[in-house]
């Protein structure tokens, strides 16, 4: 195995694994779809990174954080559904990106390019991916309680605003990392598909989180390896692998 392939695999495992684990919470809130708009929101940052030659995740991150803060504040102010707010903010992101994204260089921003990640990006994926898993794991029961019934969570003394912020921050990190692996167009799939597949085969909450993370990591490994052999872009292959896993779980889905 080459050094570059090892870096790609490590990045892929941490990014896809943590995104899928976070996805189990997003699925329970019927919010998996918002990762897509947030990925699109990352596009102006990715465009800047391509134009000036630095890491796509680094470029994407401030834009996603900005978008998340705007959505968080608008949600408190307007009480509109988060999905609706995200859609408003994401369209602004896409419109801005296409003003100055050089179309001939757009592929990396749109479908990701994990095959060229460097050591620092790999280290960042490991640290941030682990951070997302640890923080979400510690907040899991509180966020799940909010997802089930926000008023009950409040009467149980859960600081709903704080946990929403933690949750959205984890989404911001995950989306920024996901842009590197699968591009701005498909980050939602990284979050939603492994979690949906895990839901099909899990009976308990514990199984749900572990299985989702595992499905995410397997999708990344298979996608990247197939990409190395075929020369096709890794991002779409990662997503297609997770889609195949999902389809395989459908016959045994616990409904």
């Amino acid at each position: 195995m080459t050094y570059q392939l090892a870096l790609s695999l490590i990045s892929g495992i941490f990014i896809a694994g943590s995104a899928a684990y976070l996805g189990t919470l997003m699925l329970s809130r019927k919010m998996a779809v918002i990762a897509g708009p947030l990925g699109h929101l990352a596009l102006p940052g990715a465009a800047l990174a391509i134009v000036y030659g630095f890491s796509i995740s680094l470029g994407a991150f401030p834009f996603v954080v900005f978008g998340i803060i705007v959505i968080w504040l608008l949600e408190i102010r307007t009480k509109l559904a988060m999905e609706a707010l995200t859609a408003i903010v994401f369209a602004t992101g896409v419109a801005t990106a296409f003003l100055f994204l050089p179309i001939d260089k757009a592929e990396a921003a749109l479908v990701g390019d994990v095959s060229k990640v460097g050591i620092y990006e790999t280290l960042a994926s490991m640290v941030l991916g682990t951070l997302v898993v640890v923080v979400i794991n510690r907040s899991y029961s509180k966020i799940m309680l909010i997802n089930i019934h926000e008023d009950v969570a409040r009467t149980e003394g859960v600081n709903v605003k704080l946990y929403n912020l933690i949750y959205l921050s984890a989404i911001a990190i995950t989306v920024a990392l996901g842009v590197d692996l699968v591009g701005g167009l498909m980050t939602a799939a990284l979050v939603a598909i492994p979690a949906a597949a895990a839901r099909n085969v899990s009976r308990t909450l514990g199984q749900f989180g572990v299985t989702a993370g595992l499905f995410g990591a397997i999708s990344a490994v298979v996608g990247i390896l197939v990409s190395t052999v075929t020369g096709l872009p890794a991002g779409p292959l990662v997503i297609l692998t997770s889609a195949i896993i999902f389809l395989a779980t459908v016959p045994v889905a616990r409904v």
Binding site: S28, S141, M144, L145, I148, H149, D151, V152, E156, R199, S202, R203, T204, L205, G206, Q207, F208, R254
Partner: peptide, 24 residues
């Protein structure tokens, strides 16, 4: 609350043990 019913948890792999686990 009124809205806390089976519909709100049916989609999720939540056992009775998990539901109590949410309150530690």
């Amino acid at each position: 609350p009124q809205g806390l019913n089976q519909v709100s948890v049916r989609d999720m792999p939540l056992t009775v043990k998990d539901i109590f686990g949410l309150k530690k």
